[in-house]
Amino acid sequence: MKYILSTIAAVIILHSSLLAQMKKIEDKQAFEQKLEEATKTVKSIESGFTQIKHLDVFDDDITLKGKFYYRHSNRICLDYTGSLDYIIVINNDKLKIVDNGKKSIVNLSANKTMKEMQGMLAACMSGDISQLSSEYKLEYFEDTKNFKVVVTPKSKAVQEYIKDFHIYFNKRDMSVDKLRISENTTDYTDYIFSNKKFNSLQNDEKFSVN
C-alpha cells in the first residue's frame, strides 16, 4: 500500500513539473501577431521593479527595488529606491546616470557596442522585440501563464557582456512580467515588474537627459 501511494505521489509531482516546464511555441507567427497588436497600443509603461542579481560565487543574491518608466519607442528610466539614490535614464542615444545627485551623461552613438546594448535593453524591457535587429537569434517558448522569448546576441562584442536575455510575457496582456539577463551559465540579473500601468505617463520629465 505504501509503495502504491508513494508511486502515485511521484507521478503527480512529475506531472506537475512537466506542466510547469516551458515548451517550444508551435505557431510563432500567431505569437508575433499577438505581441505586435499589444505593443501597438502601449505608448508608455509605469511599474515597480525588483532587481535580483545572482552571482554564483556568493551565497546570497543582491536585491534592489525601484520604479520603471518606459515611453515608446526608445526611452527608459530606472529610478532605484530604498537606501540607494540612483537613476538610469536612456533617451534615444543618450545615457544619463545620477548617483547621489552626481550626474554623468554618455553619448551612446559614439560606441557601437553600447548603442546596440541600449537598443536591446529597451526592446527587452518594453517587450517591443520588433525593434531588435537581425543581429539576434530568437527562440519562443510557452507555459500556462507566460510566453518566453530567448534573445541571443550574435555579436561577439555584445556576447562578452551578455550571454542571452529571457523575456517572460504575461499571456493575459503581453506585458513583460520578468526579464532575465544572463552573463554566463551561472550569473544573471532578474528584473521582475509589478503594478504595471499603461499609457499613464503625463509628460516626459522622467526621461530628461539634461
Binding site: 542579481k53 540612483y86 548617483d99
Partner: peptide
C-alpha cells in the same frame, strides 16, 4: 559608478566583484 561586493568565502579567499547597477559584472 557601480556596486562593489565583497565577501570572505569558506576557503578564506576574499572575493571582490564589481558590477554596474544595471547588472553586468
Amino acid at each position: 559608478s557601480g556596486m562593489l561586493i565583497v565577501q570572505r568565502r569558506a576557503d578564506s579567499e576574499i572575493r571582490i566583484v564589481a558590477s554596474t547597477f544595471f547588472g553586468t559584472t
